[in-house]
């Protein structure tokens, strides 16, 4: 069993496309600059936040402030993920098409699924690297208490799931449309629709609920709109972890956490819906991409299956 597992895993890591993509991405000077810039931005923000909060304080151990810093950093990271992922993933297939390298790639024995899945892995690998590199910065919060590693991992888990879903959406558009420009626009539009559109729609449903005699339906619609929104689900996670503190004076932040509690987004059904939509949705989008990449693949498989059954 282990040998089979090792062979399969070895084959995956021995995937020539994966090695080529990683080599190309990591060799570029842009990667080095992007990683450095990302760490500098997160570092500057984290240290500035700490400096402002430590000034004039007599106590170094302030769990409330630490939770606040952690929440702030995690939201900054979520914003960066939602901003950077489409930029990286929206050109992976359309870029191959534009560079005229796709036809040759498709005449190799690599399956369309293998091509799409590898592209997905390499797209998220850079972002995963960025997130992992911020671990030392996050660990600063442990110095001040109030946050434990399991809580950090839970938030990172949510972010990895969101990152994977955004990459799938971007690869989907990259496969469907011919031009990278359009693919990038559509990817950002989809992310904006989920993040900002979802918040606006949820707010509208909440407003309808206050003016409608049949409140329950509108509240349920609102809950659905918030449930698929990573901003609210991250707030839900942080609420569950006990990070909600009186320090959230900002009205926007306060409204997000209030909404989470009003709609009970910490509940198991909300999390089930979120994880199902994001994991299954990502998988489904990648399957569509594989089908679109070589349209005949599934038709032929279907014909073969039919022939085999009739035999």
């Amino acid at each position: 069993m282990w040998s089979v597992w090792w062979k399969r895993t070895g084959n995956f890591f021995g995937n020539p496309l994966l090695r080529k993509e990683l080599r190309q991405r990591m060799r570029s000077i842009r990667t080095v600059l992007a990683v450095s810039l990302y760490l500098i931005v997160i570092g500057v923000v984290a240290f500035s936040f700490m400096y402002v909060n430590v000034q004039g304080q007599t106590l170094l151990l302030q769990p409330t402030r630490t939770a606040e810093l952690f929440t702030f950093l995690s939201y900054l990271q979520l914003a960066l993920i939602s901003f950077v992922t489409p930029g990286i993933a929206s050109g992976v297939i359309s870029g191959e098409r534009e560079r005229q390298t796709l036809p040759v790639l498709l005449t190799t024995p690599l399956s369309p699924w293998s091509v799409i899945f590898t592209k997905w892995i390499t797209s998220i690998s850079f972002l995963v690297l960025l997130i992992l590199m911020t671990f030392p910065l996050y660990s600063i919060v442990f110095l001040f208490g109030g946050v434990v590693p399991s809580q950090v991992l839970a938030v990172f888990g949510l972010q990895f799931m969101t990152l994977g879903a955004i990459a799938s959406i971007s690869i989907f558009w990259s496969t469907i449309v011919q031009r990278t420009g359009w693919s990038t626009v559509l990817s950002y539009a989809t992310v904006a629709a989920v993040f900002i559109g979802g918040s606006v729609v949820g707010y509208l449903f909440d407003t309808f609920a206050t003016h409608s005699p049949d409140q329950t339906i509108w509240v349920d619609f609102g809950t659905a709109a918030y449930t698929i929104n990573p901003i609210y689900m991250q707030a839900s996670l942080e609420t569950s972890l006990g990070f909600i503190t009186p320090a959230f004076h900002n009205s926007v932040v306060a409204s997000v956490f209030t909404t989470v509690q009003q709609h009970n987004l910490m509940s198991a059904p909300s999390w089930l819906i979120y994880t199902t939509i994001y994991i299954l949705g990502s998988f489904l989008l990648l399957v569509i991409c594989a089908w679109r990449l070589r349209p005949g693949t599934f038709t032929i498989t279907h014909k073969r299956l039919l022939r085999w059954l009739l035999r």
Binding site: K20, R23, Q24, R99, Q100, T101, P103, V104, T107, P109
Partner: peptide, 17 residues
């Protein structure tokens, strides 16, 4: 696909390789 070598009329190459 294993039996053929295909060269399209216009094809690109990968950067950084």
């Amino acid at each position: 696909r294993k039996l053929i070598g295909y060269m399209p009329d216009q094809f690109g190459v990968y950067d950084d390789l």
